[in-house]
Design a protein around this nucleic acid. Structure first.
Length: 300
DNA sequence: ACCCAGGCGGGCG
DNA sequence: CGCCCGCATGGG
């Protein structure tokens, strides 16, 4: 068992706020500890989180193709432990709404996941809900991941594993109309799409590169850049973000996606991705702007 | 019976 | 560019 210090890290929030980790990891609470386990394409990690504030600790163990140093780096990176939250909070606490969100969600971090895992998760996420996204991703792991007898579990399926699946088999995982997008993205990753090269690109170029994949548009591309490449200027705009920005900053007036991108870039320069995650989670937790939408619909 | 869910691609003007 | 539609599927 190895140990890490994890100041200002809230595992439950980071896990449950719609990030890839929350789509394929297992999480539970007990005995004053939180437990998290997740598979990668190379192995498995099991974590225990305990303590609070500046004395927060994480014990972890791993199996699979990782050296001690690689495993430690994997956990720190995966959980976002090296992010300087003080700087983040300073940059995104631009108004009363953001201060309230930060105050309510202190310790929520942006996780960093593998590009292929993240792509699969967010292609599956489109016009879908959290519960079914988790259901579908777990089905895909169970059905297509290679069984590792040493570990006693299925690893996260590689692009090749998924590319060779039939559309019908993908459908059986609950993917619905996204099956062809998934197969197409898996094929691209398996046949030379250079996911590693994207690390060295700026946000704009990286986004253009990912949007060439069938089934990856503006929103999914931003999710991949944020949650796999940690490009903090990425700002995924889903229905919640759109409604909430319109509600909080534009008196409820409707705005186009591009206008909202420009707004976020100006307002949270360099940290828009973090702002987005706090807006998303805070809006959902409090159903902000949702009742208003329903009322409008009733009287229109 | 309807609406909604971390959208996207294609067609139209 | 903008808007509108269909795309599976389960849950309120």
């Amino acid at each position: 068992m190895h140990m890490l210090n994890a100041n200002d890290f809230d595992l439950a929030l980071s896990f449950s706020s719609g990030q890839p980790l929350g789509f394929y990891a297992d999480y539970r609470v007990g005995k004053g500890k939180e437990f998290l386990s997740y598979v990668t394409s190379k192995g498995i990690f099991r974590l225990q989180c305990y303590g609070s504030g500046a004395r927060k600790k994480i014990d972890y163990e791993f199996e699979g193709g990782y050296s001690e140093m690689e495993a430690r780096k994997e956990v720190r990176k995966r959980l976002g432990l090296d992010d300087d939250l003080k700087s983040v909070y300073k940059a995104i606490s631009t108004d009363a709404f953001m201060k309230e969100a930060v105050s309510a969600l202190r310790g929520l971090r942006i996780t960093q996941n593998e590009p292929w895992e993240t792509t699969l998760c967010f292609v599956v996420s489109q016009v879908n809900n959290m519960k079914r996204i988790r259901f579908t991703i777990k089905n895909i792991i169970e059905r297509f991941g290679a069984y590792d007898a040493g570990i006693g579990a299925r690893l996260f399926p590689t692009p090749h594993d998924v590319a060779k699946a039939s559309l019908a088999d993908l459908r059986r995982c609950g993917t619905g109309f996204r099956a062809s997008y998934i197969k197409s993205a898996a094929t691209a990753f398996a046949e030379g799409f250079d996911a590693d090269a994207v690390h060295g690109m700026n946000y704009r170029s990286a986004k253009t590169e990912f949007m060439r994949l069938d089934g990856v548009g503006d929103k999914v591309a931003d999710c991949i850049l944020l949650f796999a490449y940690k490009k903090l200027d990425a700002f995924p705009i889903d229905v919640w973000i759109k409604r909430t920005l319109e509600h909080v900053y534009f008196s409820g007036h409707r705005k186009g996606i591009m206008a909202l991108h420009e707004f976020a870039e100006r307002r949270w320069d360099g940290y828009a991705g973090y702002a987005q995650q706090y807006i998303f989670q805070h809006a959902r937790a409090n159903k902000i702007a949702k009742k208003e939408v329903q009322l409008k619909r009733m009287f229109s």
